[in-house]
Nucleic acid binder design. Sequence first.
RNA 1: GCCCCCGUAGUUCAACGGACAGAACGCGGACCUCCUAAGUCUGAAAUGCAGGUUCAAUUCCUGCCGGGGGCACCA
Length: 646
Amino acid sequence: MLKTMNIEEMLHSNIIKIVKETYDVDVKDFIVEHPDNREFGDYSTNIAFILSKTLKQPPLEIAKKLSYRSTQEIVKTLTDAKENRIFESAEFVAPGFVNFKLSKRWLQLVPNEIILQEKAYGSSDVGGGKRIALEHSNVNPNKAAHVGHLRNACIGQFLERSYENLGYNVEVQYYANNVGVQVVTSSMGMEMVNDINPGDYEKFDHYAWDVYASMESRISEDPELQKKRQELLLKLEDPNSEEFKKQSILANKILMDQLITFKELGFDYDVIIYESDILMLDLWKKAFEMLKTNPNVYYAETGNSKGCWLVRLKEQPIQNSAEDVEEDKIIVRSNGVPTYTGKDIAYHMWKFGLLDVDFGYKKWNSGTQKKELWVTSSDPENSLSPVSFSKVDYVYDVIGTEQSYAIDVVKKSLGYLGFTKESENMKHVNYGFVFLSKDTARLLGMDVADDKDFYAMKGRRGWGIKIDDLIKMVDGRLSDEYGNFEYLTTVRTGAIKFQMLKPNTFQDIVFDLNEALDIKGYSGPYIQYAYVRANSVLAKSGITPAELAEVQPDLPELSERETDLLRTIYKYPEIVQKAAYNFSPNAMCDFLFELSKSFNAFYNDIHILGEENHDKKLFRLSLCAATRQVVVNGLYLLGIDVPEKM
RNA sequence: GCCCCCGUAGUUCAACGGACAGAACGCGGACCUCCUAAGUCUGAAAUGCAGGUUCAAUUCCUGCCGGGGGCACCA
């Protein structure tokens, strides 16, 4: 695999070297960035401002000196693998920036590089095959998945592909709580809710959606039913009970329907972890044996939490006081049953292989995905599995921001137990809520009399946009406008995923149906369209990528459109890394949009096939091929395919 | 009460402490006898309030105002 060099890093270290030689000082806290305004070059640094304090000189003076030195050193000597100079100038500008401009020669060779590297352009092997357990989707198996889950899955798939692209081994885990309150509620509803008929629904999980909402409202009004639910939950502690079996069957039926939904948008998983198997395996008991010998885990003999086991959350001198501290987190109730957080600590210890146990696994031919799908199993005949999903190097959990506190407790607990490395290697990918706009809420029949700007989805009330319904609506809109064309599914999936990924992950977003159905402008189809145009030109030219790869352009002049495109496309490898490391799919969306805009402008103003100068024509075609390749690579990371025609 | 996140054009979102705060939708103009108009060009329009730190603040700090989430022997 070819490795794309990182110009930003090269520039950074070269600046450090020059500063050392010029002023004999070491600097680190300066930045190298792409200036917003292209007139200021391709890279820019604020080094002069940083130095001005220590050197007690005006920034402009420093910038002047450093830009001179840079011209002598960086511009003259910094070359790529083929000995081409990367920069053509380094200039200082008031109030004290040093700006670097990429050389025309180097820029012209970028498309060639991209065409040669194909899918590998932007990839790297920094991950070195380290394993990441990536947990996402995690829909409770008691009802259909909604757009909140969709956001989770989209972010998850982006991380899966991005980290694979950086050389990590990513294993996608789907945690299914098949013995929780939610499934129990749906299960009760299956028997008690009689005014809803499964025959009226296209999918069973949609039926379950309404049953769940109906049952919840009945339980909330009836203490007797609440008691019954508690009893049922208790019975589920026994894996051999009738209730347990019935419950598992129901959960699996709904899970299957959820997988069908996710298949429709191309999501894949490696393993489904059943909560019931976590119970069967006694993960908790094994973990608790380790936990209770640790000085940071203690038994409260007095206080509000008398009789409970707690984990310390504040760094404090370890004392043998048995009195509980208010901030500390209860992990075992006074009746001996572990809390959710307690079990989660155990679960994460399993992920890192800190417990000496593992599940059995068996294959599930769900027919819903491209990868092999495994599920955990407590059946002794599966105890010797050919696979294992334990003992990973990193754990990334794509979980809503509302669980930040709980996850923080798990992380801290791992640390306090001495698993410092594991604690650091566990990352919470938190993402904001998906609210509904007032219009959309009204459309769903929610009460909007209080006139707020947005409304929360509520599974318990049956309020939310099901993913299946969204898909259907987008498909409907597309076929209304463009007919039933061959690549409708690809365009629809692109539209939906891009929509979910373009905002910052930590931001709450307001989902509006009208906006989701409006696929113009900053959208997936816009980028797919740029691909289709590039593709079409190349097809008509009759020239193959292999032939274009031979082209070594050396044009004296480039048009503004061509230069703009080049000055955008070379950034791709940097974006790939930034988007992955910062959990920022939106950075990739942004980049692809900017690239497509630049390509569209080029396409609009510049003749390609009609160009008479052979060299120019070839170069323009290679620009098309390069753009096409980068769009394919970038969209792939977002989980989006490209249509051959639109 | 304590903790976390968020307040940017009419709306939905950008902006690692940087150089005139970017887009998209919507609104107002202009472009198909050249490779796909799901497109291009173009106009109007914004940093909640008050202080502070800095050469430089949407970004950092303090206070206030507004919105969301969390702080369970729930999951």
